[in-house]
Design a protein around this nucleic acid. Structure first.
Length: 279
DNA sequence: TCCCAGGCTCTCT
DNA sequence: AGAGAGCATGGG
């Protein structure tokens, strides 16, 4: 059975269907994105300069409000990675019975293709930090330095933040990470770290480029590459995934999952974290 | 209160 | 090259 998603314009919004198993909530709340907010059954967010709200319709479909079908084709389809056949990937990695437990739990997750700078900056903030506080720092960063729109604030550009000092960042209470944010903004804005180049680089070289930034190590780099640059072989190793890998696989990702390491990683991460690894 | 958080840098062997 | 302390802040 071939996979192909359908995009349909309706008077309410754009419906995306035929996705196979899909979970908007797991996708938006599994620790890869930090700005989505749930109100009732609707999720909303500002991505770059676009305001979006969306809602799950069925196990295999969701609706996007406030956007046209052209917007979906031009932007949101890639953002939600709808063109990738996750069903067949889930089936392949489920050949390992322990990975299968994670797939059974949250196999409707999609790896988002988020804006590169926002993703990099967000995961710089994430280091040695907890998710509620990461979200708070990012929100303050946006309200202090983003652009105001009718629906809220945008994520500030690298160019905007490159003009600031660490003292300027004190209102966001990022702690020791403030100097890393400034260094990242300056190197990205000046193209000393060149996103256009990184997009076309193999994983290992791309990681080394990002590590030119102070406060960016393997883990932060791999998060940016996986969730921002669409490099699905990136495999961020944080405390949770290390714990899960040790406990579940003796430290080594099963060979069945290697080709889809990043996708498998996020599903194992979400499973481990939400079940407190109570296997 | 104390421990810890989707780590990284710096220093000391 | 490998280990360990320190880092800012605040949620639980």
């Amino acid at each position: 059975m071939t996979y192909y998603p359908k995009i349909k314009n309706t008077k309410n919004g754009v419906i995306i269907s035929n996705l196979g198993r899909f979970s908007l909530a797991d996708t938006l709340d599994c620790g890869q994105a930090f700005r989505w907010q749930l109100s009732g059954s609707r999720w909303s967010c500002i991505i770059e300069n676009r305001y979006i709200s969306a809602e799950q319709l069925s196990d295999e479909s969701f609706i996007i409000y406030n956007q046209t079908a052209d917007d979906v084709i031009a932007f949101w389809g890639d953002y939600f990675d709808i063109y990738r056949d996750y069903g067949s990937i889930m089936q392949k990695i489920s050949a390992n019975s322990i990975v299968k437990q994670s797939v059974d739990f949250c196999g409707g997750i999609r790896i988002l293709k988020q804006p590169e700078w926002e993703t990099l900056c967000s995961f710089i903030i994430s280091q040695n930090n907890n998710i509620p506080r990461i979200k708070g720092i990012i929100e303050r960063l946006c309200t202090e330095f983003g652009e105001e729109t009718a629906f809220g604030f945008t994520f500030p550009s690298a160019e905007r933040l490159a003009m600031l000092t660490t003292d300027d960042l004190s209102p966001i209470r990022a702690g020791f990470r403030a100097k890393y944010i400034i260094d990242a903004a300056q190197k990205v804005a000046s193209r000393e770290v060149d996103f256009e180049k990184i997009k076309n680089l193999p994983l290992d070289d791309a990681r080394e480029e990002l590590k030119k930034i102070k406060g960016v190590g393997n883990k932060v780099a791999d998060c940016a590459l996986l969730f921002g640059f669409g490099k699905t072989k990136a495999f961020p190793q944080d405390v949770w995934i290390k714990r899960a890998m040790d406990k579940l696989f003796g430290g080594v990702l099963p060979s069945e999952a290697e080709e889809y390491a990043g996708i498998a990683q996020q599903i194992i991460f979400h499973y481990a974290r939400t079940t407190k690894l109570d296997i």
